[in-house]
């Protein structure tokens, strides 16, 4: 006998595989991470029992200066990196949009950095930042900007910004792609009308282009802020958090607690904090998106 299914039942049937996967490999894990974060789980304690410690791990996290340092660098990384990549991205998008003859070529080229995996990007930039034979030092020396090769990843302040520079290279490409699509979606008539109305260069950009692109700008910033906040591969591959802990971001820091210190409780607490901040950021963006999107 054939069982008759309603449309809704079909829907649930179709959703089963996805939900199985995400329940087992996403919701169960995040719950366990939370559960561990309120327990003491050090090293080999796994079989000696894991005492419940309440929010002790969180209390540790909020009082530990290294955690604050790491949070501080993460936020600095996010803010500077997203700002830089936004402006570079919009510049590239505008250039892609206006150099008519090279549009196709430029579009193909701009997309390349985006496709480079973050860990590969880390390796590439580590080579370019090499203390002795790094090409960036070499070019700067040749240009007379510095007198001797710099150890970009060796000194704290320099390392912090070198990581950001490397990140911007890849992510500005993503920005450019998104913003270009946003630019291209503005009806040509609107531009033409603005031109005839007497709006020139910057005025047109400021009063027509930017506001018309606002929705996609917000979406792009949301994606990028969230991604930047989760950054792991680049820092792991480029500096490993060093020198000292100056470029340690929240993800690499938790990873150390897990796999180097085997302190799962503290690592989990850090991971959960990271997640919560992310949720907060995205809620903030979604709110402002909703407000701005009203004119649609």
């Amino acid at each position: 006998m054939k069982i008759k299914l309603t449309e809704a039942r079909y829907a649930y049937l179709f959703l089963i595989p996805t939900f199985l996967v995400i329940i087992i490999f996403a919701f169960f894990p995040i719950t366990s991470t939370f559960w561990w974060s309120v327990h003491e789980l050090k090293d080999k304690i796994l079989w000696t029992g894991m005492p419940f410690v309440g929010f002790e791990n969180y209390a540790w996290a909020f009082t530990n200066s290294q955690v604050w340092g790491s949070l501080g660098y993460t936020l600095y990384f996010v803010a500077l990196s997203v700002t830089l990549e936004f402006w570079i991205g919009i510049g590239m998008a505008l250039a892609m949009f206006h150099t008519f003859k090279l549009k196709g070529v430029l579009r193909a080229i701009v997309i390349v950095p985006w496709a480079v995996p973050a860990i590969i990007q880390a390796s590439m930039w580590r080579w370019m930042f090499h203390p002795n034979v790094g090409i960036i030092s070499d070019i700067l020396v040749k240009l007379g900007v510095i007198s001797a090769p710099l150890n970009f990843l060796g000194a704290s302040l320099l390392a912090m910004h070198s990581v950001i520079l490397a990140d911007v290279w890849k992510t500005s490409s993503f920005m450019a792609i998104l913003l270009f699509a946003g630019l291209a979606a503005i009806p040509q008539d609107i531009y033409d009308s603005a031109k005839v109305d007497g709006a020139r260069g910057w005025f047109r950009f400021r009063h027509i282009t930017l506001p018309m692109m606002l929705p996609i700008i917000l979406v792009a910033l949301l994606f990028r802020t969230m991604d930047a906040f989760r950054v792991f591969d680049l820092v792991y591959g480029l500096t490993g958090g060093g020198p000292g802990t100056t470029t340690e971001v929240l993800s690499t820091f938790s990873y150390k607690y897990y796999f180097s210190y085997h302190n799962f409780g503290k690592g989990s607490a850090l991971a959960i904090v990271t997640f919560l901040i992310l949720v907060a950021i995205s809620l903030f963006y979604i709110r402002s998106l909703q407000k701005r999107l009203k004119f649609k």
């Binding site: 008539d189 033409d192 005839v196 007497g198």
Partner: peptide, 19 residues
């Protein structure tokens, strides 16, 4: 360029600025 011509144009799509 158009912005220095002092002509005004009405477009078929009106091209009102939506924002």
């Amino acid at each position: 360029p158009p912005w220095d011509r002092n002509v005004a144009m009405v477009f078929q799509s009106y091209a009102l600025y939506p924002h």
